[in-house]
């Protein structure tokens, strides 16, 4: 009797829990993109940001925000590197190719006119590149308020087995 009742409770829980996830606004995907573990090296530990700079986030935080779906990821690397593999759904804004003159309309067109308080995480290839920091400073100067830098970048994302979006096949 206990097992039969437990089974009923599980079924009712599944119906409510999964059903609610179909209709609620902050629904989560059935299968999340959680990284696999035991990869040897631990996550990259970012340094303290310079005063006034946007904060750094670790891969844990980047992964959590990626799963929640509300965050815009911005790839600051060159277009070739972006095409070879990036965080899925990222916007490509190569820092080295920023146009001369006013940046605000350019950023607006890159993002398709998102509000200035949207959550944005900027990254480049990894801990040796500073494109993400430079780009984040520019975004901040143009009035974007909720910025962060994923310091580990695309390389750490890939190293931890998280999904990559590849537009072209690239050799190593």
């Amino acid at each position: 009797m206990a097992i039969k009742q437990a089974f009923y409770i599980l079924v009712i829980s599944a119906v409510i829990g999964f059903g609610l996830n179909l209709v609620r606004a902050d629904r989560i995907p059935w299968v999340g993109q959680w990284r696999t573990l035991h990869t040897g090296e631990g996550p990259v530990k970012p340094p303290d940001p310079e005063p006034g700079d946007p904060p750094f986030v670790t891969i844990d935080q980047a992964q959590l925000e990626f799963n929640s779906g509300g965050t815009i990821f911005v790839d600051a690397r060159d277009p070739e590197e972006f095409d070879c593999g990036t965080i899925p759904g990222s916007v490509s804004i190569p820092f080295d190719y920023l146009p001369e003159g006013a940046l605000a309309p350019f950023f607006d067109s890159c993002f398709g006119g998102i509000p200035y308080d949207s959550r944005i995480i900027v990254f480049c290839s990894g801990d040796e590149c500073d494109l993400s920091i430079h780009l984040a400073r520019n975004l901040q100067a143009e009035g974007y308020t909720d910025l962060a830098i994923f310091f580990g970048g695309a390389r750490e994302w890939e190293r931890f087995g998280l999904p990559m979006e590849r537009r072209v096949e690239c050799g190593e």
């Binding site: 829980s13 409510i16 829990g17 999964f18 609610l20 995907p29 999340g32 990284r35």
Partner: peptide, 18 residues
């Protein structure tokens, strides 16, 4: 990792109903 989200949707309701 493939079961994490399913678990997080199911288990709280089992806790509540039980």
């Amino acid at each position: 990792s493939s079961l994490i989200n399913i678990t997080s949707l199911l288990m709280p309701w089992v806790e509540l109903l039980a």
